[in-house]
Nucleic acid binder design. Structure first.
Lengths: 351, 351
DNA sequence: TCTGGCACTTTCTGGCATGGAGTGCCGACC
DNA sequence: GGTCGGCACTCCATGCCAGAAAGTGCCAGA
């Protein structure tokens, strides 16, 4: 870190400008940039030879590299990083785009519809892949719980949340219970927990378990135990929706079919990718992983722009755009940012 | 058709054998086959020159074609079709494979788990893409219905089916109803329909609607009307699960990245593909679409092997394997066939 | 410190020759 | 009439070469 700081300061204004122009041009055109072109594009009154010297310096610092001796320079991860951190001028979104986004994130949809729309929006506006995790369920209000007997000492629990969400889980219990026993148990739990957030409901149950201890009859104990099972596991949550994977097939930057394949596999396996998104849950606002920064090999040639989305200042999930490192950061960042905001709003008014 | 019949008969035994050997070799090696090699491989005592004459005939009939003048021959769609219809010797599955399959389709899983497993199995065993539609819900038994009031004259209906399946739908009603009114309505519907198949339940509701006509009070009318809504639309069903898409990226037959992309898009758009699968629902047993036979452009270079799966002789859905036309039909067909059978069995014992 | 000049490297392209694989056809033979 | 050997021809793939284009690095001079 210290090293980077130091280097940043040792770049004079002209050098920085040249790096900026180089990266901007590389992002928009995709070709390595040579000294002659860069000299012209920079609109500085300097000769290509001078530019060559500057570029050599930039290469020594590790901000650019050349694919081979006579091929101009392209930005490195480190170069993109400096660019994004210190020279990026965010493109404001057109009012058109904003209203289109707002329209697509209509709170009338149910939760999974919203998530799907957000993902489609990200993918559509950026031409890359959009990813949105399902909102955490812990803060949603429990409205109603119901138990139904299954065979083999199993019970189906149906939990209705405050939105149009219905969750169901299979519980394992110590003996068979009749329908009316389960009804009683459900009543008991409902009285205790209805209207509470899932987390609160869970704590209540635990408190109850503590308070009653031995003076519980069999049924009550069972009821509480079932309640515990119901509210405990964060469930089969923590999942995400990807839209526009196929967009990534268009970028020759990622054209290596092998790499593309492992990237797609990572998307469908979800594990690694979820871990990355999890890391962004604590960051507030947009976060950017360029190339190898993410730490996952499959993402070596990709950049990931993420942002958590919140309801009432509570982080509910994360959304992201995945594309080639050579992307228009200035366009993508505000899109990710605004989508996160709008998704949060939509989820909120839905409550 | 008549034309094909005619041609089939005009192929003498030797010609057929040569076509068979040619196709088998092309399937396993992937290179166009020339006359010299084919003469050797056929183990007939004939010279390459003779084989050339035969091949020319086969080309005239449209069973093979050559990519260019000096490149040997490859099978056409029509060639594969003849091969599959008349010369294919199905490879029996090893007992090992069978037991592995049985193990993976353990009825203890819930429905979506089974579908997922079946799809994974198809993809894993064939090295191609596996597709399985979710089972139709019409024949599942309704166990229990419940209504919950939402805002804006909407009601959340929860339908518990006989397996561990829970469906929920949002109904629009003519006025706000209180919780207890809805409770009554639910009781009414439950009495009428519990234990019935979804289709029967629907008919019952319709009969009831007819029977009561004007002598219904407001609540009953509403109850029946809601019941009608609940059981009517086949719901947001008719969906499928794809596993192993990425496998298809390995075949150079499909290496055209553009085509691959539109294929993947077709998978995720689902519409076209569902239409194809729907067509197989009436066929009994395995069905094969080779290349352009499917009628969908994206599948031009693919073959699709499908089979419906049934519970109690009732078709519940369709499963399929999608791969390049150049696939080992003799291996894939029994896999699709058995997977369909086992999936049906698993769904059945689960009931 | 900047600049022009120059030698050098690398990629890309087209042309060309060569070898290999395979076809089509002809004429001969059984 | 089917089968076969022979031969000319086509097309692809490969390697090689040469020339052009793009760009660098370095040096010497202002």
């Amino acid at each position: 870190m210290a090293a980077i700081e130091e280097q940043k300061y040792s770049l004079n204004e002209r050098t920085q400008l040249l790096l900026k122009v180089l990266i901007e041009n590389y992002i928009s055109e995709g070709h390595p940039l040579g000294s002659r072109t860069l000299a012209k594009r920079s609109e500085l009154e300097i000769s290509p030879a001078t530019v060559r010297n500057v570029m050599a310096d930039l290469e020594d610092f590790g901000f650019v590299k050349s694919p081979h001796t006579s091929a101009g320079r392209v930005p490195t991860t480190k170069g993109y990083r400096l660019f994004v951190d210190t020279m990026l001028k965010i493109q404001p979104l057109t009012t058109d785009t904003v209203s289109q986004m707002r329209q697509n994130l209509d709170p009338a949809q149910d939760v999974s519809g919203l998530v799907e729309s957000a993902s489609t929006l990200l993918s559509g506006l950026t031409g890359m892949a959009g990813v949105v995790t399902l909102p955490k369920i812990e803060r949603a209000e429990v409205r109603h719980v119901e138990f139904l007997p299954l065979s083999d000492r199993r019970v189906l629990a149906i939990i209705v949340m405050n939105r149009q969400e219905v969750q169901n889980r299979i519980l394992h219990v110590d003996r068979e219970y009749t329908e009316s026993e389960l009804q009683q148990a459900a009543n008991y739990i409902n009285e205790l927990c209805a209207g509470q957030e899932l987390v609160t409901a869970r704590r209540k149950i635990l408190d109850e378990l503590d308070r009653l201890r031995e003076h519980m009859n069999d049924l009550m104990r069972c009821a509480v135990a079932m309640g515990e099972q119901v509210f405990s596991g964060s469930g089969p949550q923590s999942d995400y929706v990807v839209v526009g994977q196929t967009n990534l097939m268009e970028y020759d930057d990622l054209s290596n079919i092998e790499k593309l394949r492992s990237l797609f596999e990572a998307f469908s396996q979800k594990r690694e990718f979820l871990r990355l998104l999890d890391r962004c849950i604590c960051a507030q606002g947009v976060q950017i992983f360029i190339g190898q920064e993410s730490g996952y090999e499959v993402l070596d040639d990709c950049s990931v722009i993420t942002s958590p989305y919140t309801v009432d200042d509570e982080v509910m999930g994360v959304l992201a755009v995945v594309g080639p490192t050579r992307m228009s950061y200035d366009r993508v960042i505000p899109i990710v940012d605004l989508t996160a905001r709008l998704l949060g709003e939509a989820l909120n008014t839905q409550n």
